[in-house]
Design a protein around this nucleic acid. Sequence first.
DNA 1: TAAATTCGTTCACTTAAGTTAAGAAATGAA
DNA 2: TTCATTTCTTAACTTAAGTGAACGAATTTA
Lengths: 191, 191
Amino acid sequence: MQDLLVGFISRYVSLTEDEKKAIVSLDIFRSVKKGTTLLKEGQHSKDLYFVIKGCIRTYYIIDGEEKTTAFYTEMDALTPHCAISNAPSDYFISAVEDSIISVGEMEVNIFEKFPKFETLCRILSEELLAKQQINFDEFKTSSPEQRYLNLLQKRPDLVQRVPQHQLASFLGIKPQSLSRLRARILEKSKR
Amino acid sequence: MQDLLVGFISRYVSLTEDEKKAIVSLDIFRSVKKGTTLLKEGQHSKDLYFVIKGCIRTYYIIDGEEKTTAFYTEMDALTPHCAISNAPSDYFISAVEDSIISVGEMEVNIFEKFPKFETLCRILSEELLAKQQINFDEFKTSSPEQRYLNLLQKRPDLVQRVPQHQLASFLGIKPQSLSRLRARILEKSKR
DNA sequence: TAAATTCGTTCACTTAAGTTAAGAAATGAA
DNA sequence: TTCATTTCTTAACTTAAGTGAACGAATTTA
């Protein structure tokens, strides 16, 4: 299981045997049940998450309503804002399915101890920023229906494994609108 | 003018006099007229931009229509995807106003020559990623009207200095809808 | 297993954005 | 300065999302 994490990191920076051992010893592997909350709004935490198996999500609670903004599945890394900004978190993180995750700690002087880790973080942030930018641009420039069809192409698994009402807020609409939109698409494809 | 760039960088990493000189000598300051295109779709470029004065924007052309996705004003840094991914750009960058920008080059071994530059890039990417994430989340969880009111709070200058049709696509709507929405808000505030 | 809650869908109705078109105002170029 | 183009607004109509409610299905929990 540790190999997956080491393998993931090795795609970005080459690691010595010692470094591999250090990572494995630093990281804790946690098995979490569906619905478990890993981080709550208002909490401080320096934890970084890497999904080995399963699915976790981030969501806000606005006017008592859950607004899911992101899903993280196998081989996805999640760095909560509060881990780098040391402000309290303004969102929640919880498990969509039974999952196995690796939880790392954001230590104060980690970059001095492991300069390679800074390179890894730079590359990951840059890559993520680029992806995020593209996602945002696509979101802005398309309608809810297009966004749903786009999701079907890019992350077909999500549509299957995630509850519809969570998907809806991820797409920026209400659950009823997602239902209707799907019925509309089905209707079109019949004709 | 160089001081602004050095000052900006100094907020993130401390610089020696030699490093300051190196930055100033590496960077080119360009004065660009309103409407000038700095980067076109399909082009390859390793240029990084830092806005000293004025405003530049990124936009896609989709079905012959311009879709503005971001604005960069004083003290904003813009790292185009193509500069880090070495794929051709899929968007345009152009000046909204007459602007003065600093154009840096993304060199191959820059991080080996200047380890501090890697720290700078990591911090900037992390910070930007966090901001971007929050922006995206806010966008998803609010209506066009809320987004416009939000923009009025957060970047009131943009609403003044940027053409309405560019603002509209930035808000994810059509120019006509923005006009109507503004009229609606005005109507509400009267009553 | 039974009751209670949550979830997904459908419906009717309301609200707001997209679309097409037209005209006025501002801007830029000859 | 004048003409042409672009930009902004308004309007009428169309389309789709929000809202509130209802109901069956699925899932939890007692």
